[in-house]
Design a protein around this nucleic acid. Structure first.
Lengths: 218, 218
DNA sequence: GTCTATAATTAGATAGAC
DNA sequence: GTCTATCTAATTATAGAC
């Protein structure tokens, strides 16, 4: 935007804000339309900046995509930080329930996260390998640790490969919000409403952890 | 392909097979790359036919997409016909378990089905509305009927909006196979192997229906 | 650092020969 | 019915002015 008339040295601040606005627009566009469906023109327009600034700042479309993904995972870490750091909860089951609820609320507030993941995970590609190696594997391993710790309290029989639990959790939480526009047309209900989000979290906690009374029923 | 030299009237058969080959290639391409990512050139090449035959037979790319989706839902109906028609199973729980297993096996064998659905359901578009109105709503309503019938036997508390169960089922079954390439890189395991498919079905039946001993525990 | 203007590529669609 | 050749539009990337 304004550059020639600025006093001298909040050029840095302006450039940073330009960069951020491009990243915001890119994250929205990539998650909604996929990598191929999102155009750099639409991203530049949405960010209110010139098309040429995208290769200038990000070394092309794919570099922009990588930084947008980094940002999405940063959002996830920030969004789960408080619920992960909270050790005040009573027993194991309550902590697990808190974690599930926290993830449901995060995805409801950030459907773009799960849309990015599902867009890339469905085919083998350079982007998929980068995404798995850089972001998904650490997330998967952390989740597996939690699953093994929680095996006594979850309703999943012990000894089952944690990948099943991981994908059941990812899918059953994510798809409702991934498919929010479909759900709206299908049912008339916007799944991102608070009441729906909480009902989904309730249903999942019930299914995955059982109710309080039957703890360790399996 | 051969056309001038053919005797006279298996032109119909040839044309039908050309049409079918294009549809096969289109279903694979659309599900793997999405509508924007799939190119008509790639589809024509994969089908071994000329590019011009796509607008000729299908009135353009979007018409081709619609017929490919029709075919995918035809596959679903055929794939579930036997398990839906089977009334020989003993009790309600066993029939529900059979249905869940049948759907898991279908998606494992036809990941393109769930990829098409997830590609379009994530944003509002003409294609999404067509898909929901023509195919998803009937499927949703049939599923809701089964859910209400099965409410006594499922582990979901009664009175919860069936949309939660529908999306939990769709997501927890679908994502493992939707993300098969990711899963392979992440875990080294191909989720489409028989043992993995059956383990996933086992885990889901256990979580959604409970084990036999605690039937109606809720 | 941001813009305008444009190059180079690729997309889907079509005209016309056979 | 199927092919070759081509058209128009839209894509990403870049050169160069300011």
């Amino acid at each position: 935007m304004a550059s020639a008339a600025t006093p001298r040295a909040d050029r840095h601040a302006e450039a940073a804000s330009t960069r951020e606005r491009i990243l915001d627009a890119a994250l929205a566009a990539f998650s909604e339309h996929g990598f191929d469906g999102a155009t750099t023109r639409a991203i530049a327009t949405r960010a209110g900046v010139n098309l040429g600034l995208i290769p200038y700042y990000f070394e092309g479309k794919e570099g922009l995509w990588r930084e947008a993904v980094d940002r999405a995972f940063g959002d996830l870490r920030r969004g789960l930080a408080d619920v992960l750091g909270d050790t005040s909860a009573g027993n194991d089951r309550e902590r697990a329930a808190l974690l599930i609820r926290g993830y449901v609320r995060f995805v409801a507030a950030h459907p773009e996260f799960v849309r990015l993941m599902h867009e890339e995970g469905k085919r083998d590609s350079r982007r998929m390998r980068w995404l798995v190696d850089r972001h998904v594997r650490p997330l998967f391993e952390a989740t597996c640790n939690l699953i093994e710790q929680g095996e006594r309290i979850s309703r999943l029989p012990a000894g089952v490969d944690p990948l099943h639990f991981y994908y059941i959790l990812a899918g059953s939480v994510g798809i409702l919000f991934h498919q929010a526009p479909e759900c709206r047309r299908l049912t008339g209900v916007d799944p991102r409403q608070d009441v729906v989000v909480e009902a989904h979290a309730d249903a999942l906690v019930h299914l995955l952890l059982g109710n309080e009374l039957e703890e360790n029923a399996t």
